[in-house]
Design a protein around this nucleic acid. Structure first.
Lengths: 200, 200
DNA sequence: GTCTATAGCGGGATAGAC
DNA sequence: GTCTATCCCGCTATAGAC
């Protein structure tokens, strides 16, 4: 049936995204992904020729999602403080769907793709957007509004405070011995918590 | 030669630590570890009977190192502010040696060990030490000295801000397009940066 | 486009020689 | 204690039937 043309292909990508970034199964095999998707494993090779090829494809998709998360905010014409809040909310929202996104990005799996220059290059307009935001940060810093010593520290602070709780959720659940529900409440409080830290 | 008794065993553990936590090779095989250590692969099975067994051993060692990093500070009789600084310096120092420690801890590999209760239980005196520090945090919070809404947020903030830059170093080096040396300078500035954020 | 069958390889594990 | 040889299994990949 030609109707299923790209549907199966998309299903495989979506499933791989789920297995990697939602469930954090970093060592997932093609068999696991095929089983989860409910398709025959050979279909993965039919659509993506090889395991690495699928992984690179998924990585490119993740890369785009990740970048869009920021780029959608950078150029908005709103007060700086509001923009930062939106950025944090945006990062947290993304990680509620894909808690293990960064875990994956920081692992060797991805570096294979990047080393071979298989990943999508960053378009000019996206670089412009980032630079625009960067300049805003510099401006706010010079006015003494921020609790940071440089733009890079400021940006690192935002990411650290927003992302780390997701990465460490499994560990923290054990250490603090709290329930999944309580941890969700904790994550809900994070945006205000982080805003309180970043500004003077 | 009976001289080599425990030397080879220790060499294998040290090498595994290096491969996992220094190089971040999360999927390392016994072959890789054996090659890096310069020993025959069967020796791993001779000393540790199985791959999982070695991994659990290494995990327990890492677990201990990680805990000691905190426990050495918790009970010190010094001003709170100084204690937090020492804690941050201690965390950063540990991650300068083992940048990928947390990456590993947050991955499924470890969970196998913990689920099977193979890991070392936390001794009573260590729990006491943590609780002691926790109470100090509560006290400082009640005095309004901290920029945090709860002890758990405060502790999460310390860890997030200290650890995340190490996890994301490979990614950040690419994004910001800076050299390893410059990133080291950046990491050196972190302690002061973090201290500036945590306190009112 | 989807499936079955099969080839081929790499990693874990064990037996046995030295 | 250390090494070689070997077995077994799971995973990737491909050929070919439907």
């Amino acid at each position: 049936m030609p109707v299923k043309d790209c549907k199966t292909e998309q299903l495989i990508i979506d499933t791989a995204m789920k297995v990697f970034f939602q469930e954090g199964r970093i060592n997932a095999t093609t068999q696991e992904i095929a089983d989860t998707a409910g398709v025959n494993r050979t279909l993965i090779h039919y659509y993506f020729k090889s395991r690495d090829s699928l992984f690179n494809k998924v990585n490119d998709v993740a890369d785009k999602i990740y970048r869009d998360c920021f780029d959608q905010v950078y150029l908005l014409e709103i007060p700086f403080r509001q923009k930062v809040r939106l950025l944090i909310e945006s990062i947290i929202k993304l990680h509620e769907e894909f808690p293990f996104l960064e875990l994956y990005l920081s692992t060797g799996v991805v570096q294979i793709a990047l080393d071979n220059n298989l990943s999508i290059p960053v378009p000019e307009d996206k670089i412009f957007a980032f630079n625009h935001f960067y300049k805003e940060v510099e401006h706010e810093l010079s006015k003494g509004n921020l609790k940071a010593s440089s733009p890079m520290h400021f940006l690192t602070n935002i990411l650290s405070l927003s992302v780390y709780p997701f990465l460490m959720r499994p560990l923290q659940l054990r250490i603090y011995k709290i329930s999944e529900e309580k941890y969700k409440d904790f994550l809900e409080e994070r945006t205000d918590e982080i805003m309180g830290l970043l500004f003077r």
